[in-house]
């Protein structure tokens, strides 16, 4: 087991693109080797050492037994943990967009807020966001028809608009409220919203959305099917979205 600690030296406004910060890339590297790993600062190339103090404790070459702890002001660090397959990252604060995009395995914990696109096109693994999440949690990229396909994302706070857009598998749990159109064009998987949701399930064809805190602006293409017990609570069950040529077979459960 090894623990790599990356401490951001100062706050920045021009974002860093740090898709190389993953257990897969950093496992088994020495402090100096980690410092030499490329990050991108605006239109210039830099290295981790330019922005972070680096320490390594323990040893191990295996991503699965590598933990990366990130400290300091990470609000302008994008793409942390992109495509990671194993191991863990703990972000001790807020992070910027695309955290855990394309993630295949392992775990990312964001102690603060995560900006938009967390878990974009995720295939496996787990992301825990202890604060709020931005728009497009677990969504697809522009023009793609499939978002998250596997894994799990938990948002302890609120989440933004269009979460789980085109989600085809996996699970998103939001403890707070969400913005407009969660689960839009959903084709599979599950979204659980403990708080409120606005217009959930638009154009969904499969999959399941549970909104416990109530719906603002229920979409017109959902058919009421009766009541259903979920974890001891009685929820109203709808199917839809029938706007999609009458074919939508998604399930929307509302508290």
């Amino acid at each position: 087991m090894s623990t790599i600690t990356l401490s951001m030296k100062q706050s920045i406004t021009v974002p860093l693109e740090a898709e190389n910060i993953t257990p897969d890339n950093l496992a088994g590297k020495s402090v100096d080797e980690i410092k030499a790993v490329t990050v991108y600062h605006g239109n210039s190339e830099a290295v981790i050492g330019d922005f972070f103090d680096v320490t390594v404790e323990g040893s191990g070459n295996d991503p699965a037994s590598t933990e990366i702890i990130m400290k300091g002001d990470l609000t302008r660090v994008k793409r942390i943990g992109e495509g990671m397959s194993a191991g863990s990252i703990v972000i001790e604060g807020d992070c910027d967009m695309h955290c855990g995009a394309f993630m295949r395995g392992g775990k990312i914990t964001v102690k603060g807020n995560a900006d938009a696109w967390a878990g974009r096109e995720m295939r496996g693994g787990e992301i825990i966001i202890e604060g709020d999440a931005g728009n497009y949690v677990g969504s697809a990229y522009r023009g793609e028809l499939t978002g998250m396909r596997g894994g799990k994302i938990v948002v302890e706070g609120n989440a933004g608009d269009y979460i789980g857009e085109h989600i085809g598998g996996g699970e998103i749990i939001v403890k707070g409220n969400t913005g407009v159109l969660p689960g839009l064009s959903m084709t599979g998987g599950k979204i659980i919203i403990e708080g409120t949701a606005t217009m959930p399930g638009g154009e969904m064809t499969k999959g399941e959305i549970i909104v416990k805190g109530g719906i603002i602006d229920m979409l017109p293409g959902f058919k009421f099917e009766g009541e259903e017990e979920v974890d001891g609570a009685t929820l109203k069950k709808y199917t839809g979205d029938l706007a999609v040529r009458g074919t939508g077979k998604g399930i929307l459960l509302v508290g």
């Binding site: 638009g202 017109p220 293409g221 058919k223 979205d241 029938l242 999609v244 040529r245 074919t247």
Partner: peptide
């Protein structure tokens, strides 16, 4: 702010499901 819902309603009606539209 209700254009999306109106389009959904029109599409639902077009698909022959006017019965579910409020």
């Amino acid at each position: 702010g209700y254009d999306y819902m109106a389009f959904s309603a029109l599409r639902t009606i077009l698909a022959g499901h006017a019965d579910v539209v409020p």
